[in-house]
Design a binder for these strands. Structure first.
Lengths: 156, 156
DNA sequence: ATAAAACCTCAAGCAAAGTTGAGGTCAACA
DNA sequence: TGTTGACCTCAACTTTGCTTGAGGTTTTAT
C-alpha cells in the first residue's frame, strides 16, 4: 500500500489515510486540524502528507480533550507549546491533563448541580411555587454567583 | 410603559422586551425561538408580540433543558406535545424532566468515566504504555460498548 | 404633536467543527 | 503501461444557536 520499513512490519511514516483509519477520524478532519495548527505534516516528493507515528498520540489527545468539552482553539493553544516533531511524553501529558481535568471537574460539577436543582423541582412540584430555581431565574441565579447572570453562561 | 392590568401592578400580558428582561434572554433570541416553534405569541393591533405570563416558565424550562445539553430541536419536540396557551403544570414538568434528567445522568456518567480514564493515565504515565486508553483508541473503545465507534459520539 | 424608545420583518453574518465536491495529481499493482 | 484508488487544493456548503443591521411602524412620554 505505502512504502514499508524494510526492517519491520510497521510503516515508518504514515499516510493521511492510514492515520485516519488508525485514529478513527476522517481524512478531511485531519486536513482541517492541520489548517487549525493542531497537527502538522511533512510532505513526500509527490506532495502527499507523511506523518510520524507520534501523530496518533497527538490526535488521541486532541480527541480526549474534545470529549471534555474543550474547544479546538484552546486545545490548539495548549498543544502549541509542545513541539510537533517529537512524541508527547508522559510529562507533557501530565501538564495538559492537569488543566483539562480541572475543566472537566467543572463541567461535571455544573451538570451535577443542575441535576440536583431539577430533582428538587420534581420533588416539590416547584413549577407552581415561588422558590423554584426555574420560577424566577433572574433572582435565583443572582444569588448563585457574581454578575447579573441568569441561567449560567453554561459552557456545558 | 405598557398597558397595565387595572387591578394589579402586574401587566396582564408581556411585551417581548419585558419577557427578555425578565427571562434573561435577548429579544432576538425570543424571535428566534418563535421561528423554531419553541414559543408562540399573540399580536396586539399594532402587530407587536404579547405573551401570557406563562411564557416565562416556558422560557425557563427551555433554558434548563439547554443547560443539560439538549439541542433546541429536541426541546421543541418535547414541548410540542404541550399546549402553548396554558401554563406548564407540575405534571408537565415531571414528564419533561424525567427524560431530560436521564440524559443529564448520561452526560455526567460519560464525563465521569472520562475523568477516571484521565486519572488512570496520569497515574500510570500511560502515554508510553500499550494499555492506555489513549494509546489505541480504536481497540479500547471497541470494548467499551456496541458498535464500531471510536472515541464516543459524545453529545457532551 | 412630536421625538425617542421599543417594536416589526427579512436578510445576512458569525463561530465552531467539520463535510462535500470539483478538478487535477500521484502511486501501487497487474 | 495502464488504470484504479489514494491524494492534493480550494471553495463552498452544513448545522446549531443565535446576533446584527437595514428600513420601516407603533407606543409612550413630554
Amino acid at each position: 500500500m505505502m512504502e514499508k520499513c524494510p526492517n519491520s512490519k510497521m510503516p515508518r511514516e504514515l499516510s493521511v489515510g492510514e492515520v485516519a483509519e488508525r485514529s478513527g477520524v476522517a481524512v478531511s478532519t485531519l486536513h482541517f486540524y492541520e489548517t487549525k495548527g493542531l497537527i502538522r505534516s511533512q510532505r513526500n516528493r509527490g506532495n502527499q502528507r507523511r506523518y510520524p507515528r507520534s501523530i496518533l498520540r497527538r490526535v488521541a489527545v486532541i480527541k480526549v480533550a474534545q470529549r471534555t468539552g474543550i474547544p479546538l482553539s484552546e486545545i490548539a493553544d495548549a498543544l502549541s507549546v509542545l513541539p510537533h516533531d517529537r512524541p508527547l511524553t508522559a510529562e507533557d501529558w501530565r501538564m495538559l491533563s492537569k488543566t483539562w481535568r480541572r475543566q472537566l471537574d467543572d463541567r461535571i460539577a455544573r451538570l451535577t448541580k443542575l441535576r440536583n436543582q431539577i430533582d428538587g423541582c420534581i420533588g416539590c412540584g416547584c413549577l407552581s411555587m415561588q422558590e423554584c430555581p426555574l420560577r424566577n431565574p433572574l433572582d435565583t441565579l443572582a444569588m448563585e454567583g457574581p454578575g447579573p447572570r441568569l441561567l449560567e453562561p453554561d459552557p456545558a
